[in-house]
């Protein structure tokens, strides 16, 4: 089925009969205009946003990079210091374990004192305890020779009187 003369005539008649449509172009444009996307502005906005995003990401990466380097350095420094500190502690401990003259002297002095005390009183701790349990008349047992001598003189004086 092909186009024939009648079809062309029909087309001509239809097109001539079609009245020029009475439309309010301004009114329709006002309805259409807000719906049309603002391509140019959007594109510029998009580019600006894209550039801004790239810059922010780049800055972020730089910050992360330098922070990690700094943190890494701090980490190394921290553990190096810790090593140094632990060595220092170890040295101190070793030094403390080594015999010190002063300490030895003190110990010797203490030993000497203890021995002297032992010579003076075989059991000083017992003597102190007995202070509260012994009969007062037996106190003389623990008085010194000088005190005993004083006591003898007092007795003689009493006898003479």
């Amino acid at each position: 089925m092909k186009r024939d003369g009648a079809d062309d005539l029909l087309k001509e008649k239809v097109l001539s009969a079609e009245e020029e449509s009475i439309i309010d172009t301004e009114f329709l444009w006002n309805k259409l205009e807000p719906l049309i996307p603002v391509k140019q502005k959007r594109t510029i906005k998009f580019y600006y946003k894209g550039i801004a995003a790239v810059l922010i990401i780049a800055a972020g990466l730089l910050v992360i990079r330098y922070t990690s380097i700094k943190e890494g350095n701090n980490y190394i420094a921290k553990y190096t210091n810790a090593d140094i500190t632990s060595k220092a502690i170890q040295n101190t401990i070793n030094e403390l374990h080594e015999p010190d003259d002063t300490t030895t002297k003190t110990i010797d002095k203490n030993k000497e004192i203890t021995q002297r005390i032992a010579q003076i009183s075989p059991s000083p701790s017992l003597a102190e305890d007995e202070m509260f349990t012994q009969d007062p008349s037996t106190f003389g047992l623990y008085t010194s020779v000088e005190d005993e001598q004083d006591d003898d003189l007092d007795n003689e004086q009493l006898n003479n009187n």
Binding site: E18, E20, S21, I23, T25, L28, W29, L32, E33, I36, P37, V38, K39, Q40, K41
Partner: peptide, 21 residues
């Protein structure tokens, strides 16, 4: 193509009646 409003309006005014038909 560049989103010019004036150009868009000109085109609309030029073809809207025919396209309405």
């Amino acid at each position: 193509k560049t989103g010019n409003r004036l150009a868009q309006k000109q085109l609309f005014e030029l073809y809207s009646k025919n396209m309405m038909l």
